[in-house]
Design a binder for these strands. Structure first.
Length: 224
DNA sequence: TCATTAAATTGTT
DNA sequence: AACAATTTAATGA
């Protein structure tokens, strides 16, 4: 648990701002609490802000025409998303749902573009973020077809600890096995089996209502 | 603070 | 998908 200002200060992208720029960001950014299970943003909504997770966990997902729920990725404390929509498409391309009670930060579109125009470090950060996400999605497509469920679960968890996207995330992840299943496209029972195998391998510890990550690198390379 | 009950989550079939 | 076991959270004495 941390304050909005502390979260902003800890963000990689805020480190490179001038004190004046940082002050404006703090002044413009609004905070909102979202209970578990509630929508942070709906698919198709106009995108009015860059959204960060101060504390909590959200998932980006979509519902196919056939009604099937597809989860793309999760975002943990310290992560920001929606820059793609702010740069290009005016509307959000996916639903964002809180998996736990979460506190979100909203940086207005106007401030976001002002930072783009005035801060080189901010641009640099965005490049890195976009690149990391691209890599994540490429890996997603790749391992979705090639790897066994154990490895999918492992990499999906490792992705939540990407240091570029989510700096300083605690090792303890509060998430049910059912949700890990959604994130990794495995059934709940297959996910449960995978988690226990990963625990046997010493990569994480399975707990009630969550897991503690012991070896991020090991998870990332699992099954490779 | 402790005991009881309900709800959520996990482990098995 | 359904069921049983386990853990946590909530309630009230």
């Amino acid at each position: 648990m941390q304050t909005l200002a502390a979260m902003l200060r800890a963000s990689l992208w805020a480190q490179g701002l001038t004190p004046a720029q940082f002050d404006r960001v703090v002044a413009d950014t609004k905070e909102r609490a979202v209970p578990a299970g509630a929508y942070v943003a709906h698919k198709g909504d106009p995108v009015e802000a860059w959204i960060g997770v101060i504390d909590g966990l959200v998932k980006m997902s979509s519902v196919s025409p056939a009604g099937k729920l597809v989860t793309f990725t999760g975002v943990t404390s310290g992560g920001w998303f929606g820059e793609g929509s702010l740069l290009k498409d005016p509307r959000r391309k996916y639903d964002v749902i809180a998996l736990r009670d979460s506190r979100m930060a909203y940086l207005p579109r106007k401030t976001f573009h002002w930072l783009l125009d005035n801060s080189i470090p901010f641009n640099r950060f965005l490049l890195t973020q976009l690149n990391e996400r691209l890599g994540q999605f490429i890996a997603l497509v790749e391992y979705d077809r090639m790897l066994e469920p154990d490895a999918r679960v492992a990499r999906c968890l490792a992705a939540l600890f990407n240091p570029h996207l989510y700096p300083g995330t605690l090792r303890r992840l509060q998430i049910s096995q059912e949700e890990i299943g959604h994130l990794s496209a495995t059934s709940r029972q297959r996910c449960n089996e995978a988690l226990r195998r990963l625990e046997d391998a010493g990569l994480l510890r399975v707990e009630y209502g969550g897991v503690t990550i012991l070896d991020v690198e090991g998870l990332r390379n699992f099954g490779a």
